[in-house]
Design a binder for these strands. Structure first.
Length: 680
DNA sequence: CGGCAACTA
């Protein structure tokens, strides 16, 4: 497996002009065979990794650190843990394999249990939030990276484990990045204290190799052969001012020239533009000459109901071309087979962070080269394919090489709180693989100080007792704080509900085609107190009908997300009971809930200006009420909000009406500086 | 006055 893959020669095309047919080259590697009838041990032996098995087992036995590089299809994620076990690593403890996503952890564990011929939860198990399928026999444990991090708070040396395999390391999720440091420190301390050594294996696609190796004590890099097929790359001849128009033209160019069985995957940025382009494609397809054949256009994004997401896996009707319009969900989370063409707009909607203001903002931006290759790779999974990049080769050369790790573009309040809870002595100098800016870390510590989670003692930042309690919730610090404050306002049951609703995907389902119906149904729950209380009303109604699914459909409520709310709430309530948080309901006196939210979310406060606009008080920047808010038509003097969303404007999402007095009592010092009424 | 990346504890 080459470290820097030989990229195919580039060809130029201009959307709208005919591109020339690609010559079919024989595949570099054999296509993966359909394997339903092949016995599982034979499948194992057919994996590219199997040829190197004895060599790998030997190396894994000797090395303390290793970086394993291999593309999807190399079999590393299922085989390496088994090799570690066969090398005797599992005898004195458990081999942990971390994954960024729940579904991956669960399905990999099932697969490996099957390969081992054991029942899931015995030798091979998994641990994800809400689910622990392990036992005292479990030696190979697949888990989400967040779960291992949580375990580390109780056991910073990770003594139950003899090896930790950090998989999908190239994705650089916040959790993985924190784990890098935690695992490295645990390894060093165990050596110093003469405890059983901890092996650390980092597994990644072909990116960041030197960085990983350097960070983990210059560890050796092992390359595994993958199963990627050749991909033909096309760039545009000239820069495209309108990537949507370019995407549309390219879809139909391919549609007119390529065999109808070749599916197309288009990478775009969000729900709205995907739905709009889907409509346009369907319209145009209707009016094409018969020689073209029909087209099935399938939108794909995370908030789509599961049944609709599954449509991308169904083959199109005979003689019909499948065109999938997707967000970056298809980059890593959902793998679709049969994709012959990828159209890459080169854009993505992603979080950005302003360290001065401490505010996260969601914005459309250019992708990185690594993402461009990831997208391209989606066309070469079973056979050779093509990718149409809707930008020039020069523009490609100017893309940043790697996506900036998430830890450098998010609010670090959670991370800092977690590090302190882990007992890291000097959080500002934590051994991050990629250090966030000192400003970002300082801003996070300031926010934690405002929340009362940390204080400075002898020039060191330490957790307060409140901070320790906050760290035991799997929540952003401000939400944990809000829960811990709620007994003061006699509304903890309500606040638990509201926080649970805020910490899952939205429970509101808004199909654009049934807009009027949807608004009418929503009106029953709407209150001028804001979105939080509207959500609370919906949850209360949902409980009243015993979580009835039919009720959910009629009221445009996403029942899957709503049941998730229930699970989260039960977990948070359990933690409250352990901490001795008094649980009581405020009944109809919902003003108490708003007052509590004001105290917990005061950093996200906004004030109505004389000209009718809003100013976010923390960063003192102009903001507006998001059209999805129940307060969109209203003009409340003061609100607290959940998050900012930057599209055509900087929008506040999920607002709660509050009194200026409440903000003042929540953080007097802070608001003496911020409030307009105190400035003039 | 106008619109919702992706994950996860």
């Amino acid at each position: 497996m080459p470290h820097d893959p030989d990229h195919p020669p580039a060809k130029k095309f201009k959307p709208g002009s005919p591109f020339f047919r690609l010559d079919k080259k024989p595949g570099m590697l054999l296509p993966r065979k359909g394997n339903a009838s092949v016995p599982i041990d034979v499948q194992r032996k057919n994996l590219p990794i199997y040829q190197a098995k004895s060599q790998l087992v030997n190396q894994l036995r000797q090395l303390h650190n290793a970086v394993l590089i291999g593309e999807t299809g190399s079999g590393k994620t299922t085989q390496i843990p088994q090799y570690l076990y066969e090398a005797g690593i599992g005898r004195q403890g458990i081999v942990a394999v971390t994954q960024p996503r729940r579904v991956a952890a669960i399905s990999l564990a099932s697969r490996v249990a099957e390969e081992k011929g054991t029942q899931l939860g015995k030798l091979v198990g998994y641990t994800v939030r809400f689910e622990d399928v392990t036992s005292s026999e479990t030696k190979l444990k697949y888990m989400t990276d967040g779960m291992l991090l949580r375990e580390a708070i109780g056991d910073p040396l990770l003594l139950r484990y003899t090896a930790v395999v950090l998989d999908e390391a190239h994705e650089r999720t916040v959790h993985t990045d924190v784990l890098f440091g935690v695992v490295k420190a645990a390894q060093r301390k165990r050596r110093e204290q003469n405890k059983i050594p901890l092996k650390v294996i980092v597994m990644s696609a072909t990116m960041d190799v030197d960085l990983f190796s350097q960070y983990f004590n210059k560890s050796p890099v092992l390359y595994l052969e993958g199963r990627q097929h050749p991909i033909q790359i096309y760039y545009t001849k000239t820069p495209q001012s309108d990537y949507l128009q370019a995407a549309l033209v390219s879809v139909f160019q391919i549609h007119q020239e390529a065999p109808v069985s070749h599916d197309i995957l288009v990478f775009m940025t969000g729900q709205e533009e995907i739905e709009a382009l889907a409509r346009t494609c369907r319209d145009i397809a209707k009016h094409l000459p018969d020689s073209c054949g029909p087209m099935t256009v399938i939108p794909l994004y995370a908030s789509l109901p599961p049944a609709q997401q599954l449509r991308v896996f169904q083959p199109a009707a005979k003689g019909c071309r499948k065109v999938i319009l997707s967000t970056n969900i298809a980059e890593t989370s959902i793998t679709i087979s049969g994709i012959k063409f990828v159209i890459d707009t080169g854009m993505v909607k992603a979080k950005r962070f302003n360290p001065e203001s401490g505010l996260e903002v969601l914005a459309v931006q250019r992708i990185s080269k690594a993402q461009a290759w990831q997208r391209a790779g989606r066309a070469g999974r079973e056979d050779s394919g093509s990718v149409y990049r809707l930008y020039t080769e020069d523009e490609f050369d100017n893309l940043i090489p790697m996506t900036v790790p998430e830890i450098q573009r998010c609010n670090l309040a959670s991370v800092m709180l977690q590090l302190l809870a882990l007992g890291v002595p000097d959080v500002m100098n934590f051994d991050f693989m990629s250090k966030p800016s000192p400003e970002a870390m300082r801003t996070a510590l300031e926010q934690l100080e405002l929340l009362g989670a940390v204080e400075e003692k002898e020039e060191k930042v330490v957790l307060t007792s409140l901070g320790k309690k906050m760290a035991s919730f799997p929540l952003e610090p401000r939400y944990a704080k809000t829960i811990l404050l709620s007994p003061d306002f006699q509304c903890s049951e309500e606040v638990l509900t509201v926080v649970s609703l805020l910490s899952v995907d939205t429970v509101l389902y808004n199909p654009p085609a049934r807009r009027e119906e949807c608004l009418a149904a929503r009106r029953k729950f709407t209150t001028s107190e804001g979105d939080h209380l509207t959500l609370l009303n919906i949850y209360r109604a949902f409980k009243k009908v015993n979580a009835n699914k039919e009720w959910c459909r009629e009221n445009f409520v996403n029942s899957r997300n709503m049941s998730m709310v229930g699970e989260v709430r039960a977990q948070l309530r359990e933690i409250c009971l352990k901490l001795g948080v008094k649980l009581e309901s405020c009944g109809a006196d919902t003003g108490r809930v708003r007052r509590c939210l004001a105290h917990g979310l005061f950093v996200n406060a906004a004030e109505l200006q004389p000209d009718g606009t809003y100013t976010a008080l923390d960063a003192h920047q102009p903001v507006a009420i998001h059209p999805s808010s129940v307060l969109f038509q209203a003009k409340p003097a003061y609100v607290v909000f959940n998050e900012l969303l930057h599209t055509s404007k900087c929008y506040m999402r999920d607002l709660c009406l509050v009194d200026a007095d409440w903000l003042m009592e929540a953080a007097p010092e802070y608001f003496r500086r911020k409030l307009r009424s105190n400035k003039s």
